[in-house]
Simulated assay, not measured.
Amino acid sequence: MRYKYVLFDLDGTLTDSKEGITKSVQYALGKYNIAVENLDLLEVFIGPPLKDSFMQYYNFSEEQALHAIGYYREYFETKGIFQNKVYENIEGLLKKLKKLKLNLIVATSKPTEFAKRILKHFNLYSYFDTVVGSNLDGTRCKKGEVIGYIIDKYNIGDNRQVVMVGDRRHDVIGALENGIDCIGVAYGYGSVEELRNAKAAYIVHDVNELFQRIISV
């Protein structure tokens, strides 16, 4: 078994967070008199750093995007954070990987503080050696920065021992920037085409297939 460190994205990989994230974005956009009734249109905000998404999809300036994040958090901290659910079979996957004595780490662009609250709420926190996300001041929000921090923190000398598991191209790009494999999960919010074009090392379609891929490499 080559992989010793398994890095998991949170949104779209461990939990289905669509309702909470999209309603938080909807709330923030409403502060700018932008009404979006169809929450499906806001799925693009799941995964990437929020600032980038506000700037890309709504042409916000950097300053506007930072203010929008503040509005986003007004809703998310009290309501959106728990409008969320764990994907089926995830806890079983984590139990099996822990029995194999693998190091399980959450690597997310979501602020670390929020990620920890979510994992504790769903009784998943104890399965992870550590949780690394962005800082509340907006730093370390790129997935490549999060992964690089983890590699440095654990002083990992052989990056072939590390794999990133995520559902969006940003997970794949961040992994490639750090010279590690990425397993793309097609049950999340990124399409197979998105993951393939980003050059994910492997693509799986369900949690059982994910387990087999992690242990068979």
Rank of each mutant, 00 (worst) to 15 (best):
A35H: 12
H205Q: 04
H67Y: 11
R168L: 13
E194V: 12
G174V: 12
R2G: 01
A107L: 06
S109Y: 03
Y75G: 09
T15L: 10
P48S: 11
H67W: 07
Q56T: 15
C141A: 15
T139P: 09
L195P: 03
L210A: 12
E88V: 05
L176F: 03
N155R: 14
I203A: 07
L195Y: 01
V6T: 04
R160K: 15
K18L: 07
A186M: 06
V146K: 05
V207T: 01
T139E: 13
G92K: 07
N197F: 03
D167T: 04
Q212K: 12
D52P: 01
F76A: 14
G179T: 08
V6H: 08
K153E: 10
T78Q: 08
N38I: 05
Y87K: 02
V217I: 11
A107C: 13
E43W: 00
D11T: 09
Y3L: 09
A68L: 10
Q83A: 11
D129Y: 13
F211R: 07
V106C: 13
E74K: 06
S109L: 10
N84K: 00
Q83D: 15
K96W: 00
E193K: 15
I214N: 08
I183R: 06
Q212V: 05
G184C: 03
H121G: 04
K96F: 00
A35M: 05
K79L: 08
V207D: 02
L7G: 01
S109F: 05
D16A: 04
P48H: 11
Y5V: 06
G12V: 02
I156K: 09
F128K: 01
V204P: 02
I173Y: 09
L39M: 01
E37K: 07
D129A: 15
V172A: 10
N33T: 03
N84V: 00
V36S: 08
Q161Y: 01
D158A: 10
